[in-house]
């Protein structure tokens, strides 16, 4: 996985610098990564005090904090790229769902613990090679963020993989739930890796890493990938599921009730 990611990384600095009008394209790209992290953090934070064991409450809060930390760095940078004076809070709290650029996967409701772990596995299997590539890209800020976030994502991947194996190869009930979760979430992985040659990093280049990690974990967990041609998308262009607007309503309610206030 890493070997491939590093190879990809070699090719990227040129790609990043080759974008002539860096402003808009890179802003959209960074915003997409930021929103993935922010929405994932919000969903994971919803688990707090609901975890299946106390250690898991701590672990999920930890992962939520990592995602939130990455989101803040990325949103701040996105705001600077845009140059319109929007800081992390302006971007997080004062955009509507149509302006969010996150993938659909992260906004899906938490479901049971198996569904949350399926979402986390796929997200982390995407974020690890992505951040690895970023860590050595030509954009210094993104490289810094990537270097920090990839270590955290490696832990998220490890945590999710462990649970997917435990649940897949645990009891009959856990196997049934874990397989159902994979079946439900799998179609949303296509959007993560959909080719976009104009993006600073073409997500399609992460496909090899993603597939090798995910197929390994699922095989060990005695789980199968569902056969389906359905490939829901739209998140990157701001056309989301019905769930996102509710998530944002909760996230933004207090901030928006007090325009101009500091907290």
């Amino acid at each position: 996985m890493t070997a491939h990611a590093e190879q990809t990384a070699q090719a990227v600095p040129g790609a990043v610098q080759a974008v002539p009008e860096a402003g808009t394209d890179r802003f959209d790209f960074v915003l997409g990564l930021a929103d993935d992290a922010l929405v994932a953090a919000q969903r994971l934070a919803q688990w707090c005090t609901h975890g299946p064991e106390m250690e898991e409450d701590i672990a999920l809060a930890n992962i939520a904090l990592d995602q939130l930390g990455a989101a803040r760095l990325l949103l701040t940078y996105a705001g600077e790229l845009e140059g319109a004076g929007r800081d992390e809070d302006a971007l997080a709290y004062r955009r509507d769902d149509r302006e969010f650029r996150n993938c659909l996967l992260v906004e899906l409701p938490n479901g049971d613990f198996a569904l949350t772990m399926a979402k986390l596995l796929f997200l982390a299997a995407y974020q690890v090679p992505l951040y690895t590539v970023l860590a050595s890209c030509g954009d210094e800020r993104l490289a810094e963020i990537g270097a920090k976030a990839r270590k955290e994502s490696a832990y998220h991947l490890d945590h999710a993989s462990l649970w997917v194996r435990r649940l897949g190869d645990g009891t009959d009930e856990s196997h049934r739930r874990m397989q159902a979760a994979v079946d439900e979430v799998w179609p949303y992985t296509h959007e993560l890796l959909a080719p976009d040659p104009t993006a600073p990093i073409d997500p399609a280049t992460l496909r090899v890493d993603f597939d090798s990690v995910v197929s390994g974990v699922l095989a060990e967990a005695t789980l199968t990938v569902p056969e389906t041609a359905w490939k829901p998308d739209g998140g990157r262009s701001g056309v989301h599921t019905e769930h996102l607007s509710y998530l944002l309503a909760e996230l933004q309610v207090l901030h928006r009730a007090h325009p101009g206030a500091s907290w």
């Binding site: 707090c48 809060a61 904090l65 709290y93 996230l251 206030a261 907290w263």
Partner: peptide
């Protein structure tokens, strides 16, 4: 989930995690 800034959200999340 309703913390009014991202910084406050991070601090509160960390605090509740400390309690666990």
């Amino acid at each position: 989930t309703r913390a009014p800034s991202l910084k406050r959200k991070a601090i509160l999340l960390a605090k509740v995690q400390d309690e666990a």
